[in-house]
Design a protein around this nucleic acid. Sequence first.
DNA 1: CATATTTAATTCAGCGGGTAAAATATTTAC
DNA 2: GTAAATATTTTACCCGCTGAATTAAATATG
Lengths: 405, 405
Amino acid sequence: MLKSKASQNAADQRNITRLRVLEHIRTEGSISRIDIASALQTSPATVTAATADLISAGLIKEIETEHQSKSAKRGRPRVLLQLDGGSYLIAGLKVARHMISVILADFEGNEVTSYKYPLDDVRMTPGAFVATIRTALDLACAQINATLNSLSGVSIGIAGLVDAERNFVHWSSSLTERNVDFSQFLETELPCPAFIENDANLVAKAEQLFGLGKGLKNFLVVTIEHGVGLGIVLDGKLYRGERGCGAEFGHTKVQLDGALCQCGQRGCLEAYVGDYALIREATVADQGTGTETVAEIHKNARSGDERAKSVLTRAGQMFGLGISNLINLFDPECIILSGTQMDLEHLYSDEVMARIRSGVVNVDTLLPEIKAHHWGDLMWAKGAAAYGIEQVSILKVKELATNAP
Amino acid sequence: MLKSKASQNAADQRNITRLRVLEHIRTEGSISRIDIASALQTSPATVTAATADLISAGLIKEIETEHQSKSAKRGRPRVLLQLDGGSYLIAGLKVARHMISVILADFEGNEVTSYKYPLDDVRMTPGAFVATIRTALDLACAQINATLNSLSGVSIGIAGLVDAERNFVHWSSSLTERNVDFSQFLETELPCPAFIENDANLVAKAEQLFGLGKGLKNFLVVTIEHGVGLGIVLDGKLYRGERGCGAEFGHTKVQLDGALCQCGQRGCLEAYVGDYALIREATVADQGTGTETVAEIHKNARSGDERAKSVLTRAGQMFGLGISNLINLFDPECIILSGTQMDLEHLYSDEVMARIRSGVVNVDTLLPEIKAHHWGDLMWAKGAAAYGIEQVSILKVKELATNAP
DNA sequence: CATATTTAATTCAGCGGGTAAAATATTTAC
DNA sequence: GTAAATATTTTACCCGCTGAATTAAATATG
């Protein structure tokens, strides 16, 4: 049922307004209509219309106004609006090498339950991939006596090159095949809309919607884990590059013909900062006596082991160089370093910050804020859930448009 | 005279449509209304309205339709539209260390005349700066028996940190002062609107409007000259960063604690690729026998001088590394290298391209196009003129909105 | 306690940009 | 010359947003 151009454009405009309102409510937590109008520079009448639509879609709800609250003013009290957390259940998945992590989240991004599903094979065929995801979802839903049908959206994060707009995976370390179009697979296997995205972009979405990037227009999210990832948010939108394969911060080169990276190239940042790089170096420093874990390297460094310290110091130097390059190129409002406490420890130090400062041109202007966000191991799955929540919001608003009275 | 919200938004919308039409005509050169409608996914009625406005503003004109041209089809012939080149005269200036270059261009970007005004002082006070610009403009106008009053816009390019939206210069190597607000200065000294921008951004604008970036959404322009500059065009718009000091490609670090750069930091790309870097290296290679020029280095390399060759080779290696990092981060449609024939010679070689390829992740996808654009020495001034043309377009369309019948 | 006052939210008529459809313009085909 | 084809313009209308008027819901006041 193709709509005419006129109603297309008009509906588009209206959806944009509704999404802007929804987004503002999400950012503010709870807010009255009149404040939305003034913040978005729009008229109260428009806000009334938009919020009515959003309420009827179950996306937001009114909460009881606190009478004579703070400033005991008279006049009709403001009715606060906030996300309607309970109305939709969203699943976020992260596919890692030996594990699928699942989070079921409510519409406000709160974790309802989580589940970890161990993986035998690092690489799967597309069919096995989708089937495994389905199984993991079933088990996660079972934990709260729900079924797949309770889900309003599923969002899947994987490492690799993903064209999120088409649910198309150019390449992923979790798949045996290249160039897989998941739009078919997912539609037949899952009873709700599903989305695939690059994992670093998902974390960026989580920071934007619920984390340290709330309300920011231009910021970068650097993820630290096995590798080094980057999510770029410009003008409030994820920047994915022309072919969907940008933001490969971990593989920017910090040394001409430098250390060998997993990707086969030399001098990648990841080859100095990734966990395998640390382990490789530490092993050499130990004269190859055994395979040390990253945790052990940290422990040894703390207890004064000069070789372990040196490994972490160089990682920090290279990391600082890379971050200062990001600032020199993007001049963002803020850079968020996302990872576990341990992964960030040696990368969010005074020495690294000093090196960043010394690598950014024009030191008299204030440096962009650099914040560390210490996540637990569900960081990626939570990111996926955040993306799912946003995508479901967009779908519900679109449905509104077509079902208009 | 403040307009109401309603007319503001509506007028905005309309201006956006008119600018989109104007932009498309500029990109296509000459095009009929029906083709504009189909290209912009809009209705013929809207195009009729928009083009009528643009014609009345003197921005575009109809050109004689060629009867039964190519395909001898019947039906009413298409009327081609194109920019109305003659209607406005725009000045573009580039302030360099010892010279101000001026271009007077028509509205289609064609050079009407050019003029070079030698500078005694590298650094000037803001007052002297504006006065000098005025003098240079006067002399340039005199060449075609025109006056300053003939100009519809003046665009000024300088090296440094510029907040173009406010005509505010945070810092420039051409000024004795920091944090200069030129909006006042220019308004009193010049009889027409004037704009200041960072010089690399201007070249990017020139590529977008009239050069190799025509019609592209996401591309990068790397300028090679004394230093290495970058202009970033994302989603069709210049990306300037949060504080207007992004795109400092020349000062991204390609070597930890590497060669000393003009900016005082170590390891900057520019410290390996800039002309002063080449001269410094070559002088060492010559055992300090004298100051070689870049042209001589090239000549020596061509005639087999291994030391000169080595200087250029390393510059190329570092440049290739930097470019591959840009691709890894931005994944652009295209990278345009802009400079003189000589400056680009050793940087647009097969060796450098091979190094770029070897530094970009995911080699199975096609590399973004890398094009060299060999400009003459008026590159920067032409860039300024391009920016001026765009700004004047925007102003004229805005005037239309307020003068509507 | 009744009423005035204040502020929030909603309703409603109208503006204005964009559209589809109709009308008009201008050509070639026959 | 007339019909057919194609481009452009005109016209009536749709729809989102707005300002103004209205309604709603609280406090202040005497």
